[in-house]
Simulated assay, not measured.
Amino acid sequence: MKQLDYQSLYKAAVTSVVSIYRDPGQRGAGSGFFYDDTHLLTNEHVVRDRDRVDIRFHDGSWETGTVVGSDVYTDLAVIRVSDSPTEATPLQIAGGTAYPQPGQPVAALGNPLGLDGSITTGVVSGIDRSMPTSGGFAIPDTVQTDSPINPGNSGGPLITAVDDTPGTNEGYPVVGVNRAKSGENIGFAISARVISEVVPELITTGRYRHSYLCVQTLDVTPRIAKANGMDAARGVIIVNVRQQTGGDQLKPSHQKRRIEEAAVPVGGDVIVGIGGQSVRSHEELTRRLLTETEPGNPIKLDIVRQGREVSIQTVPAERPVTAGDRKRAADSSTTIPIN
């Protein structure tokens, strides 16, 4: 691969980035970019409660787009457009070896504060982050960056500054969809891995079905490991269980024990593996549930129960969606009806 300058990246990608307006005559609500020839990708919160939005392309032309699918739990949405400038070509979504790595140079494109066609630069600060939202849940597998992301940048692409296909935008893969700024020099983007998993379903069905274990967990710390007779801090301990659907049932902690002046949960199952892959943290568990499982399909969990490691088979439920998200999916033009 050859490292190129940001000017080359900008020229290759900016014509594929759009401004999205929720209401005519008002400042743009956010950004988006071409996922394929007829679909734009953006954040769910940019188009929330809208079936149609106005799109302004880089050349200044306008089009009204239809929201065909959205998912509140990954904050992704897809907009269909019927006409677009010829230079507005799809951006490649990173995959395999192109997934982001800490220290990798990246650029965020979009329309911060209504300033069309802006670029900011930085590096990947971290990967596999779990980003809390105001809705009370966390988005798994997000990319942390120090590239400035401001209001209006949401929905735009976070692009790697490495090109192995000179002369086209295909050499600059998208490693994330910009979502928010969380603090000074800290921004987040929904990862390419999540995009590749969720977006095809949004296009074909209007929504994405999330696996849900119906449990609340905490990362196992050294104190929790000691209190539960574990040889090392690993996995997540179950502290609360809601109604489960089928298969072997998971057991929550019902008491606490003081370890080094701290009260920690004891007695609950500790998930240390899923589908034969290790689980070291809540972030890893939620990512694997999102990208490797489906609601209603049995999965194997490796757990520590009363000091012994055993394997069980459970059936994840479908994570419930909000009424507003369900209505928008049902009302949009999709090929499969929502029941």
Rank of each mutant, 00 (worst) to 15 (best):
Thr286Phe: 11
Asp116Asn: 02
Val241Cys: 06
Gly267Phe: 09
Arg257Asn: 06
Asn240Phe: 08
Val162Pro: 02
Ala329Gln: 01
Gln243Arg: 14
Asp116Glu: 01
Arg319Leu: 07
Asn339Lys: 10
Lys181Asn: 07
Gly110Phe: 02
Glu87Trp: 12
Gly276Arg: 12
Val198Gly: 08
Thr322Asn: 07
Asn297Ile: 15
Ala227Leu: 08
Asp54Val: 12
Ser182Glu: 05
Ala323Gly: 05
Ile186Gly: 01
Gly229His: 03
Pro173Asp: 05
Lys327Ile: 02
Met230Thr: 05
Asn169Glu: 01
Thr89Ser: 14
Asp128Tyr: 04
Gln3Asn: 11
Ile79Met: 10
Pro298Ala: 13
Gln313Leu: 08
Arg287Cys: 09
Asn297Leu: 15
Asp325Ala: 15
Asn153Leu: 04
Asn43Val: 03
Val239Gln: 03
His45Glu: 09
Ile336Thr: 15
Val266Leu: 13
Thr89Pro: 08
Gly167Pro: 02
Ala88Tyr: 07
Gly273Trp: 10
Val321Cys: 10
Pro90Tyr: 10
Gly152Asp: 03
Gly229Asp: 03
Gly32Lys: 07
Ala138Cys: 04
Lys181Leu: 01
Thr245Gln: 13
Arg27Gly: 03
Val14Lys: 09
Val72Thr: 14
Cys214Arg: 13
Ile195Cys: 00
Ala233Leu: 11
Ser16Lys: 03
Asn339Glu: 11
Lys181Ser: 07
Asp75Phe: 13
Ser182Pro: 00
Val220Phe: 06
Arg50Pro: 04
Glu318Lys: 05
Asp146Phe: 00
Asp5Cys: 09
Thr245Asn: 12
Thr121Ser: 04
Asp83His: 15
Val198Arg: 08
Gly296Pro: 13
Ala12Arg: 04
Asn150Glu: 01
Val47Leu: 12
Gly32Phe: 04
Val272Phe: 13
Gly167Trp: 02
Glu294Tyr: 13
Leu109Thr: 12
Val239Ser: 05
Asp75Gln: 13
Thr64Phe: 10
Leu158Ala: 01
Arg234Trp: 00
Gly183His: 00
Met131Thr: 10
